[in-house]
Amino acid sequence: MATNVAVIQFPGTNCEMDVVEAVRSLGADAEIFFHDSADLGNADAVIISGGFAHGDYLRPGAIARFSPVMDATVSLAKSGAPVVGICNGFQVLAESHLLPGALQKNAGLKFRCGTATLRVETNNSCITNQLEVGQELQIPINHFEGNYTCSAEVLEELQAEDRIVLRYVENPNGSVDDIAGICNAERNVVGLMPHPERACHPLLGSIDGVAVLASVLAAAGATVG
């Protein structure tokens, strides 16, 4: 049976179809769940796609956190299923306290849009289990508030527990310790600013996102058994 991926869509989300197409191209099933869904069907994994959930009003992710679909997402995360937040999805996970820290405005107040080179820092996560540590990936970024920040204690914890999943080779936004993506202590919840779904076909200029999404599916398969 194919792995089922729930792709979350808030009012203002705009990358959900890209994620659905990319996931389906890898042979899995993907279904979009609107923010008012109280359950996620028989999902084996959740991807919170990018955009501007609830208009990014107040702060990115601040209002999305209270959408009914987040209760179901939190339950699935607690059960050990992979939950991945891409770009705005990372901001939603941080505001939901599923991941520590916060995303603030980019240093220099610059909207960054382009291809970033990322280094895989650990393959013990649900987005890098099909990759090698030290491997470099070309994946697009597209954000204004991607400058990851956290307390010194949290940073120390992330470093000591090998929870920094991806780093920028050249920091585009001022994020602390060049962080592009992190995971939770259980390693099944990951947030990343880059968009792997936009690097899944040669026509898009890079296929480095394929292994990232394939890792999510592999992790989902392992959870399902």
């Binding site: 405005k105 220099g108 107040l109 920040t149």
Partner: peptide, 14 residues
């Protein structure tokens, strides 16, 4: 307001 030590790019730009 931004916490002490958190960068405030808007303030700095102004």
């Amino acid at each position: 307001t931004h916490r002490e030590g958190i960068s405030d790019p808007e303030g700095a730009t102004i």
